[in-house]
Design a protein around this nucleic acid. Structure first.
Lengths: 202, 202
DNA sequence: CTTCAAAAATGAACGAACTCCATTCTGCTG
DNA sequence: CAGCAGAATGGAGTTCGTTCATTTTTGAAG
């Protein structure tokens, strides 16, 4: 990698870190692009050379978090606990527990809003693709449990996996739009998992 | 109602109709508040005496649509078809089929985005409450089917109803964020309903 | 019918994201 | 090393949503 490319990568990192820090401490709306640029040590115009809009900058930050969570989920999918509730909970709690590590609820809300409102933007497409991979992990987990004979052979793993994912997604959305605690979120999703596990039992 | 109150109601209607028409034909972002005000026959400032922001104006419009859909759903809940898939489909197709009557996908997306990003605003709270009532209808339907002995007595109707609602909501969000047709949306949700009906069967 | 305080409407001004662009700087290449 | 292409700069300009001081309208009291 030439010096030029390295500078580019450095600047991208600096901008992302500066923005992430400010978004988290001040809230998305309260942060001016000038301030991000200043903290990153570049000019405002330069930020726009890297990210088309303030929203895209946020979505890029959030997408990094999702990628980390995805990587962490692989372990559960490839080697799931034998009980259905335990397997689902392990995967989903992994998602939830990491969600506020680098990000605030405000950042999640704003990023979700951006990707819904403008699904055609490249940053949104990327985010949606990551979401699809999360859904794929849930489907894969259901299929794995089914292959091991822990849930009924007759059920449609894709449809059921999709429903479970949509559910955990909705509960997470509720979490970030209220002052619900992580603990309460976990309890709620576990309740749903128990209900589904009872239905899926062989 | 005094003259003053009547004028107020008239203006509210004119503003809502003007905004709805323009949002639908031009798209939310392309419509300037000036233009809505002009079509409604008032000044820009006046619109702000009636709706705090452009987004709140949109959410008010969308909320009206949800209220109509809610009313239409009552019939299915109080007297559901005996088969589980038929009952779920009748309710949910009712929701979906009316969704584009007055609104565009763009309006749905933007309204969803607004309510997620700013859940504390009065207009968002109202919208979320309507969503809760939709979820309540699904739960009530499951409970009714259960009371009639069409699905297992052992299952948790609140958890299962919540999951079904979250699922139909997610599928609708996918619908409005892509160019999927209503037909394809119906087919997809029916597939999920069949999968769930099989699990819930006595 | 006149008065007047409260309510409502008005539109000019403001602020911030974003665009544009002439200029400057920097690292690659012949 | 020269000079060129690509990138950063930063300030001026645009656009809208939003705000607010001012003006106009309202309807009840005298």
């Amino acid at each position: 990698m030439g010096l030029r490319a390295k500078h580019k990568a450095d600047r991208t990192e600096r901008i992302i870190h500066a923005a992430a820090q400010m978004f988290r401490t001040l809230g998305f709306d309260a942060v001016r692009m000038e301030a991000i640029a200043a903290l990153a040590g570049v000019s405002a115009g330069t930020v726009y050379n890297y990210f088309p809009t303030k929203g895209d900058l946020l979505v890029a930050i959030v997408s990094r978090e999702v990628e980390e969570v995805l990587a962490a989920g692989e372990a559960t999918v490839t080697d799931p606990p034998p009980d259905v509730v335990g397997a689902l909970s392990q995967l989903v709690h992994g998602y939830y527990d990491h969600s506020l590590h680098y990000l605030s609820k405000d950042m999640w809300r704003t990023a979700m809003a951006m990707t819904i409102q403008s699904p055609e933007k490249p940053s949104s497409r990327n985010y949606v693709a990551l979401d699809g991979r999360l859904q794929g992990q849930v489907v894969a987990l259901i299929a794995a449990l089914q292959a091991r004979g822990h849930i009924r052979a007759a059920l449609d793993p894709i449809a059921v996996g999709a429903m479970l994912f949509h559910n955990l997604d909705a509960l997470f959305r509720m979490f970030v739009t209220t002052d619900q605690t992580l603990e309460a979120l976990r309890a709620e999703v576990d309740r749903h998992h128990r209900a589904m596990a009872a239905l899926m039992a062989v």
